[in-house]
Nucleic acid binder design. Sequence first.
DNA 1: CGCTGCCTTGATCTTCTTCAAAACGTGTGG
DNA 2: CCACACGTTTTGAAGAAGATCAAGGCAGCG
Lengths: 248, 248
Amino acid sequence: MTERRKTPIELKHVPAHMCSTDLRLEILSRVPFFAVLPPHDLAKVNQRFHEKGFSAEEYIYYEGDPAFSLFVVADGRVKLIRHTVSGKDVMLDLLTPGEFFGSLSHLEQELNAETAQAQTNACILTIEKSEFHKILDSFPGVAMAVLEITSRRLNAAQEMIRQISAYSVEKRLAFTLLRLADKFGKNSDVGLLIEVPLSRDDLAQMTGTTTESASRVLSQFHKQGLIESGRQWIAVTDRLALERLAGD
Amino acid sequence: MTERRKTPIELKHVPAHMCSTDLRLEILSRVPFFAVLPPHDLAKVNQRFHEKGFSAEEYIYYEGDPAFSLFVVADGRVKLIRHTVSGKDVMLDLLTPGEFFGSLSHLEQELNAETAQAQTNACILTIEKSEFHKILDSFPGVAMAVLEITSRRLNAAQEMIRQISAYSVEKRLAFTLLRLADKFGKNSDVGLLIEVPLSRDDLAQMTGTTTESASRVLSQFHKQGLIESGRQWIAVTDRLALERLAGD
DNA sequence: CGCTGCCTTGATCTTCTTCAAAACGTGTGG
DNA sequence: CCACACGTTTTGAAGAAGATCAAGGCAGCG
């Protein structure tokens, strides 16, 4: 119930359009599915990638456009969105350095199934679909790791379907906050701070509800002492209570 | 508006607990990710599989149980379900011969994320997780095909999230009927007949709504001349109108 | 200091769920 | 072959959850 309201998030991401080339190798080595490679092979893989900087809010690609490349987040946060005819967007995922997105399929003619947008200033590594498939063919361990990650994402998506189908907005928001805290949480003086600039609207898009409903539920959470929050930031202050609420 | 109401679905599946061993090889060769294998290798793969018959309604495994195996539908229909605390189940998928389910991860200790239940009498091929991974290691083409299928399923799950988040029950049901018609549809004298015994409750579980709401919407579709239906069966009679309604 | 965009809160309205009961079909056993 | 019994489907009425509409407040920034 404290009245701390200034944003505690420090965005120390790269300036837009400035990815350090020197850091690429180090970043690639931390990508889960390249971690299996010996240094020599990793260096070869590195050469196939290009890098590109994006400003916060900038679009990386659009749903429906032809899909040419696979992307890897090197720095910053990237959100994946699907649009709807009514203009209500749905956020499918929020990515952190080391995660990939874009097209996996080797089919030509494929279209992007979602829109990718930089949530913060971001540095993105890209590789042509065909180049990436050469890597998959050369290093079966990489293919297995990609499969493993894709399976986990499928599981997460199906879990989301269960949630939206059967649980209240309150439960879903509690659940979403817990996931975000796991992925982006960092201990700070306001509690377990979620280190991404997240608006009420973002939360709404992640839980399948409206800005207003998300705001109402968060206000209630705050009254109950479960969270601290302000403009574009949220911190979890009572994780156990949130878990009880999410019913997990 | 005709009054044809007798079930037109003929279930000519194997009797329960009786899978013909002779047909296994033929079935495996039609599994998309084994289709890439030459006959000799396929025969070797075949030896690693076991078969088991299930009666309609019988459970194959339960959500939360330890996951030991990967499964392939040889004959019949299998549904994948997630349960909820309120008792409202969510159907994630309805599988047809050639499709796989169960555990892909090589992690021990993994638990089933969903329940698998035979929707009709069914014959299921099973293989130990570790055995399947030997196959993946030996035949990279198989691993790539599995990755491709998993990606498509991820895409389908994410599309479902968009639907449930943003569209009305009416739109979602129209969309679900179209998908079912694509996968299970067969031309018949009542229209494009969906060849699975599907109750209103099944449809509700697939679209994230209740039995009653599903029934109401289907009644309306029937009045509009879009479908023909009866107890546990549905046929699409006006595909174009349904597509218009689904807004695709 | 005022502008812009985000957040909050209230009031109303729509959609869908819930509860209840009746009608129907399908398979069964007489 | 018919009648009964069971599970499925339909329909109505009431209620709840959440969406929508609207207005005001607050933070951060130029």
